[in-house]
Design a binder for these strands. Structure first.
Length: 865
DNA sequence: GCGGATCAC
DNA sequence: TATGGTGATCCGC
C-alpha cells in the first residue's frame, strides 16, 4: 500500500539507506569494512518480505520524525523559555540525587555463547565461528566479527560475509551451566548482584572495596581473573558510580578489558559529554528509533545536547521520558539497590514457514499452548490475561488479548481461548505464533489475606473498571518499577507538576499543562480501600453481569446451567452468524446488533417455554443486565411471556432482505413469502424462484470459502457507500487484485453497484495463470456485496486506453457476464452523465447482479459439496 | 484493558 | 531458500 517510498534512495549506492543495525559500533568491529558489509547485507535482503517490512517500518519512523520536527518548530520561544525553567529546576533536583558514594561494577562476558562453545570444542579456537543457524545467529566470536558477522544477523548473510564461517547450534544448558559458575564468583563480591542476563551482571562493590581497602579497578581485576580461573572464560568490566555509567564503561575496553570512571562529578561530566554518539546509543532505553528521533528531529547528537536542549525534550516528550533523557545527559542513573523484580509475563512463541492452512495453524497453536502451560506449571504460575501474537507472512506483528475470569495455567484453558482469538484473525498467513500469559494470581499478593480477596474481587469484576482504576495497585507498582528500569532513584512526578503550575501562574504562560502532567501520578494519599472494597463486593454481587456470550470470557458456571445451549455469537469469515448461518455484511452494524438480539430473544423464548420453573429471578436479571442496551427487548421481556420474533424485524429498507432470509430459514416458507411481499414488493430480491425454492446463488461465505481453496484471501472494506475488495495470496500475503467502487442510485435503476476498478497484479500471482480466476473472485465479492446492499445492476466502464487493451478488457468483462450498454465517447449530451461519473471515455457495461451470481454459482458452490 | 512499538539481550 | 525467543515497558486509545 505505502510503497514507492524507497525511490528516494541514492541510485548509485542504494545500500546506504538500508539502515541495518549490523554496522553499529560493537566491540570487535573496528577494522571492518562497513560499506562492504552494508552492501552485502543490502543485496542479500533486498526484495525479501523481511526487507519490505523494514522499509515499511522505516517509512513509519520517518513519519514519526517528521511529526516530531513539526511539533518542535511550532514551539514558541515563550514556550521554550518556560520549559527551560522546568529543566533548570529539574536539573537541580536531579543533581541533588547524584550519589557518588557507591561503586558499581558491570561485568559482561566476552562473546559468551561462542566462548563456551570454543571451550567445549577447542578446535574452534582461532576460527571464525557463530552460534546459531542459517536463519539466525546468536553470537559470533571475534574472528567472525572481523568479517562483519555479528549477533542477530541471519546466518545466510553471515556466510556470505565470511564463507568459511563455522556454525555451532545453540545449547542453552551449557550456557546456563557456565553462567552459574560466573555467578558463584560474583556472589563473593556482592551477594545481591543483579543478573542482567546469562552473560552480564551488575555488582555493587562499595562494601568489598571498603572492607578490603581496594580500589574498584583492583576489585575488577581480581574478579575477572577469578572468573577466568573458574570458567576459562574472559569477561570485561566497567566500574563507575552508577549502573548506567558502569555499563557504558564495560564496553570500552572489550574484550577482556576494563575501564574505571572515577567517582567525581567533573570527571563524570567530562566523560559523558565527550561520549561519541556510537557509545551513548547503547545506553539502555535508547534504541534505533529513539536515536533517530533525537538526532534527526531535534538535532540531539550527544549527551551534552540532551541537557542543552532539555526544554525541547520536556516540551515534546512525556515527563518520564524527558526525565530519563535529562538524567542520561547528566550521567545519572542506577545507584539504588532495587529489589529483585518478579516476572510479569510468561510466553512461548515459534517461527515456522509461513502458512495459511488453518489445520496447521491450529495444531501449532496447540503445541505452543502446551509448551506455555508446561512452563507455567514448572514455575507454579497462574495468570488471567492471554495474548496471542502473530507474525504474518509479511512480517507484521499482531497481538490479540483477552482477560479471563479465572486464573489458569491449564493447556486446555489456554488453547480454548487462544483458538477463539486465532479464529477471529483467519484467514491469515503467518510465520510465527506466540502465546503469552500475564496478570499472575500472586502478583497482587498482599500481607493482609482479607485484602487479597477483595482485590481479587475487584480485578475479576470487569464492569468495575472505574473503581479498579482508583484502586490500581499495579498502577502504582508500575510507577516504581519504571523508575527502577530507568535506573533512576528519585521520585519525579508530583514535584514537577507543581513546578509547572508555578511557572504557569507566575509567567502567565501558554503551556498546556495537560501535556506535561505525568500519565501516572503517584497517589500518595491513603486509599480507603477496605471500606470501598466492601461496597464493591456488595455491588458486585448484586449486578454481576452475565457475559457468557461475549467472546472473551471463561465459562460462567451459573450461566451454563441456565442456558446449556448458549454459545457466543460470532461472525464466521466476518460474515456468517455461527448460530444460524445468516449472513450480514460487517457494515450492517445496527442490523447485526438486532440480529444478536434475535438470538437472545430465542433464548428467552426457550427459557420461558421449556422451564419457567427452573429459572431463578436472579438469572433473569443477569441476562437483562448485560443486554440493557436494548431497551426494546427489555420492555418486551417485561410485558409478554413470549416475544414474537418479527418484533425484531421492523425495518423496511433494502437491507431487510437479510432478515427475510433469516426468517425464511427459521420459519414457515409461505408465511415468509407473504412478509417478503409486504415489506419489499418493489425489489426483486426474493431468494426464491417461482417455485418457491431458494435460488442457488452463492453466498458471501461460499465465495470466500471457495476462494481459499484457490489460495486467495479476500477482504471487503466499506466506508459509507464506498467499498473496496482486496485479494491477497494467502501464502505470500501479496496483493493479487482489487476492486473498488460505490453503491449509488442511478437514473431509473434504483441502486446500482458502480465498479470503479478491477485491478489484477500479475507479478505476485504465483497461484494460477488464469487472470480470469482472480478477477472473478474479486469481482464476485464486490457483486455479492452489491446484492447484499440491494443493488440489481452492476455497471462499469471499460476504459478506452488503446485499441488492443480496450478490446481485451471488453472481452474479459463480457466473459464474466457483463454486456456492452453503450460507448461513452463524449460526443453526445447523453454521455455527459457517464462522463461525469466515470471521468473518462470507454465502453459502459452493465450486468444484472442476480444474473451474474447465478451464472457464477457453479464455480463457487462446487467447493461446498 | 488492548494493541502497536520499542528495547534489551 | 532463508531474518529468533523471552520479557518488559510505554503510549495512545
Amino acid at each position: 500500500m505505502d510503497n514507492g517510498e524507497s525511490s528516494t534512495n541514492d541510485s548509485s549506492r542504494p545500500w546506504e539507506s538500508y539502515n541495518t543495525v549490523f554496522t553499529n559500533a560493537k566491540a570487535g568491529m573496528e577494522g571492518v569494512d562497513k560499506e562492504k558489509v552494508q552492501r552485502i547485507v543490502y543485496e542479500m535482503s533486498k526484495g525479501s518480505k523481511y526487507f519490505q517490512n523494514e522499509e515499511r517500518k522505516e517509512a513509519l519512523m520517518k513519519q514519526k520524525i517528521e511529526h516530531m520536527r513539526e511539533r518542535s518548530t511550532k514551539l514558541s520561544s515563550t514556550d521554550l523559555s518556560n520549559y527551560q525553567k522546568v529543566v533548570d529546576r529539574r536539573i537541580l533536583e536531579l543533581e541533588a540525587t547524584r550519589d557518588l558514594s557507591r561503586i558499581w561494577l558491570h561485568v559482561d562476558m566476552d562473546a559468551f555463547y561462542a566462548a563456551v562453545e570454543t571451550l567445549s570444542n577447542p578446535s574452534l579456537e582461532g576460527k571464525p565461528m557463530a552460534v546459531g543457524g542459517l536463519s539466525m545467529i546468536s553470537t559470533a566470536n571475534y574472528e567472525a566479527r572481523k568479517f562483519g558477522v555479528r549477533a542477530a544477523m541471519p546466518g545466510f548473510i553471515a556466510r556470505k560475509l565470511c564463507p568459511e564461517l563455522i556454525f555451532v547450534p545453540v545449547d542453552f544448558t551449557k550456557y546456563t551451566h557456565y553462567s552459574e559458575l560466573t555467578r558463584k564468583v560474583f556472589r563473593n563480591y556482592d551477594p545481591h548482584f543483579i543478573a542482567g542476563s546469562l552473560d552480564e551482571a551488575y555488582l555493587d562493590i562499595t562494601v568489598v572495596c571498603r572492607e578490603r581497602g581496594l580500589s574498584g579497578g583492583e576489585i575488577a581485576e581480581e574478579l575477572r581473573s577469578s572468573v577466568y580461573s573458574e570458567t576459562g572464560l574472559t569477561c570485561s568490566a566497567g566500574v563507575a558510580a552508577n549502573r548506567l555509567l558502569a555499563k557504558v564503561c564495560s564496553d570500552i575496553n572489550k574484550p577482556n578489558g576494563q575501564f574505571i570512571l572515577q567517582n567525581d562529578r567533573s570527571t563524570v561530566m567530562t566523560f559523558i559529554s565527550s561520549l561519541p554518539i556510537r557509545k551513548w546509543i547503547k545506553i539502555g532505553g535508547i534504541g534505533k528509533v529513539t536515536e533517530h528521533i533525537l538526532k534527526d528531529a531535534l538535532g540531539i547528537k550527544t549527551c551534552e545536547d540532551m541537557v542543552q536542549k532539555g526544554s525541547l525534550l520536556y516540551a515534546l516528550f512525556s515527563q518520564s521520558s524527558a526525565d530519563f533523557f535529562l538524567s542520561v545527559g547528566l550521567g545519572l542513573g542506577g545507584t539504588d539497590s532495587p529489589e529483585a523484580r518478579s516476572r510479569k509475563s510468561i510466553s512461548s512463541e515459534r517461527t515456522f514457514s509461513a502458512t495459511g492452512d488453518e489445520k496447521l495453524l491450529y495444531s501449532k497453536l496447540a503445541e505452543i499452548a502446551e509448551m506455555l502451560s508446561d512452563d507455567m506449571k514448572k514455575e507454579g504460575l497462574k495468570a488471567r490475561t492471554l495474548t496471542l501474537k502473530l507474525k504474518t507472512a509479511t512480517f507484521e506483528i499482531k497481538s490479540r488479548a483477552v482477560s479471563l475470569q479465572r486464573y489458569t495455567c491449564s493447556s486446555e484453558d489456554i488453547l480454548k481461548h487462544a483458538t477463539k482469538l486465532l479464529k477471529a484473525e483467519l484467514p491469515v498467513s503467518v510465520r510465527l505464533i506466540g502465546l503469552r500469559m500475564s496478570q499472575f494470581s500472586d502478583e497482587i499478593r498482599n500481607s493482609d489475606p482479607s485484602q487479597e480477596t477483595i482485590t481479587k474481587f475487584i480485578i475479576q469484576k470487569d464492569s468495575s473498571r472505574q473503581n479498579l482504576d482508583d484502586n490500581d495497585y499495579d498502577g502504582s507498582k508500575n510507577c516504581i518499577s519504571n523508575d527502577e528500569s530507568l535506573g533512576l532513584s528519585f521520585d519525579t512526578h508530583e514535584t514537577s507538576y507543581d513546578q509547572l503550575k508555578d511557572v504557569e501562574y507566575e509567567e502567565q504562560s501558554e503551556i498546556d499543562a495537560d501535556k506535561v502532567i505525568p500519565n501516572q501520578e503517584f497517589k500518595k494519599e491513603e486509599r480507603p480501600r477496605v471500606s470501598e472494597g466492601d461496597a464493591l463486593l456488595i455491588k458486585h454481587k448484586e449486578c454481576r453481569p452475565d457475559t457468557s456470550h461475549s467472546t472473551n470470557d471463561a465459562p460462567n458456571t451459573e450461566a451454563v446451567t441456565v442456558f446449556p445451549q448458549m454459545e457466543p455469537l460470532l461472525w464466521i469469515d466476518g460474515y456468517k452468524c455461527n448460530l444460524c448461518g445468516i449472513e450480514l455484511p460487517p457494515s450492517f452494524v445496527e442490523e447485526r446488533q438486532e440480529h444478536s438480539d434475535f438470538h437472545l430473544a430465542q433464548r428467552l423464548q426457550n427459557e420461558e417455554s421449556c422451564s419457567s420453573s427452573s429459572t431463578t429471578p436472579t438469572s433473569k436479571r443477569r441476562i437483562l443486565g448485560k443486554e440493557k442496551a436494548n431497551s426494546k427487548l427489555k420492555k418486551q421481556k417485561q410485558d409478554h411471556k413470549h416475544i414474537p420474533i418479527h418484533t425484531f424485524f421492523t425495518k423496511t429498507n433494502q437491507n431487510s432482505f437479510s432478515y427475510l432470509k433469516l426468517i425464511f430459514q427459521k420459519r414457515n416458507q409461505e408465511e415468509m413469502k407473504m412478509v417478503l411481499n409486504l415489506i419489499s414488493p418493489k425489489l426483486n430480491l426474493s431468494p426464491f424462484n417461482t417455485l418457491g425454492e431458494p435460488k442457488p446463488i452463492p453466498s458471501m461465505s461460499d465465495i470466500l470459502t471457495s476462494s481459499r481453496t484457490r489460495n486467495l484471501d479476500l477482504k471487503i472494506q466499506t466506508l459509507g457507500p464506498f467499498f473496496r475488495v482486496t485479494g491477497k495470496n494467502i501464502d505470500t500475503g501479496g496483493e493479487v487484485g482489487r476492486a473498488e467502487g460505490v453503491v449509488r442510485p442511478w437514473f431509473g435503476k434504483g441502486l446500482v453497484l458502480h465498479l470503479d476498478t478491477i485491478k489484477l497484479t500479475k507479478e505476485t500471482m504465483k497461484m494460477e495463470k488464469s487472470v480470469l480466476g482472480v478477477g472473478l473472485y474479486v469481482g464476485a465479492v464486490a457483486i455479492r456485496h452489491g446484492y447484499d446492499c440491494g443493488c440489481r445492476t452492476a455497471q462499469l466502464l471499460a476504459i478506452y486506453d488503446s485499441d488492443l487493451y480496450h478490446s481485451k478488457l471488453v472481452r474479459f468483462y463480457r466473459r464474466i457476464g457483463f454486456e456492452e450498454v453503450k460507448e461513452v465517447s463524449g460526443s453526445s449530451i447523453g454521455d455527459m452523465a457517464d462522463m461525469l461519473v466515470w471521468g473518462g471515455v470507454g465502453t459502459r457495461m452493465d450486468a444484472s447482479i442476480h444474473h451474474l451470481l447465478l451464472k457464477w454459482s457453479k464455480v463457487f458452490l462446487k467447493s461446498k459439496i
